[in-house]
Design a protein around this nucleic acid. Structure first.
Length: 196
DNA sequence: TCCGGGATCCTT
DNA sequence: AGGATCCCGGAC
């Protein structure tokens, strides 16, 4: 099966241990996969945002704390945080160890386990399953247990899926300071982004 | 548009 | 110890 072949090879740690903007620009088109007891859910990443050291919107901008410490760890690990009292957001740690940077995954195009996503999201419309950072964590059942996970492992990982495609670059969503920086990227023409 | 919801972190 | 803030989503 074509899709089985695609979900077998996690991106190597070297992919993540590079310039964060490059990582954020190359993740769209890749597939995020999460295996759970309930089943496998996966989707093509269609939207990302880069969070950089020295960037006031970055959780790590004021130094290391218990919450943001995964961002300072080795690249290729997850950083999942809880916000607004009810939502989880999923980030991948990028750049060299000791550099507090990450890429927020903001939207996916559902590919595998779509029926399971519908149950978890309590929504039938495919476009409402993963079109936002907290929607996709709900659809893939990503929570605090998925914080600090190694993305080169077997449970949760990202793999190549589609060839590079045109990207649109915009400012990031929902932030105040650093709002003018062009650090949001999405696949041109995708119907699954959080907003245009 | 508006507000729930709770952890986090800075300020006192 | 208190309160402002938070990379949101869903119901209005």
């Amino acid at each position: 099966m074509k899709e089985d072949g695609l979900i077998r090879s996690p991106l190597p740690r070297d992919f993540y241990g590079r310039d964060t903007v490059n990582v954020a620009r190359e993740l769209p088109g890749c597939m995020l996969v999460h295996h759970t007891q309930e089943g496998t859910t996966a989707g093509i990443i269609v939207e990302t945002e880069a969070y950089l050291q020295g960037d006031p919107a970055c959780h790590a901008s004021r130094g290391i704390t218990p919450r943001n410490s995964p961002m300072f760890g080795p690249p290729g690990f997850t950083y999942v945080y809880f916000t607004y009292g009810m939502h989880y957001c999923f980030n991948v740690v990028s750049a060299a160890e000791g550099v507090g940077e990450a890429v927020l995954i903001r939207a996916l195009e559902p590919v595998l386990g779509v029926e399971l996503m519908k149950i978890r999201r309590k929504r039938e419309n495919t476009h409402e399953l993963c079109s936002g950072p907290a929607k996709l964590t709900q659809a893939l059942a990503i929570g605090k247990e998925q914080n600090r996970c190694d993305l080169t492992g077997e449970q949760i990982y990202i793999c190549l899926a589609r060839p590079a495609a045109p990207l649109v670059t915009t400012t990031r969503i929902g932030i105040r300071e650093g709002a003018e920086l062009p650090l949001r990227f999405y696949l041109e023409g995708s119907k699954y982004v959080s907003r245009k």
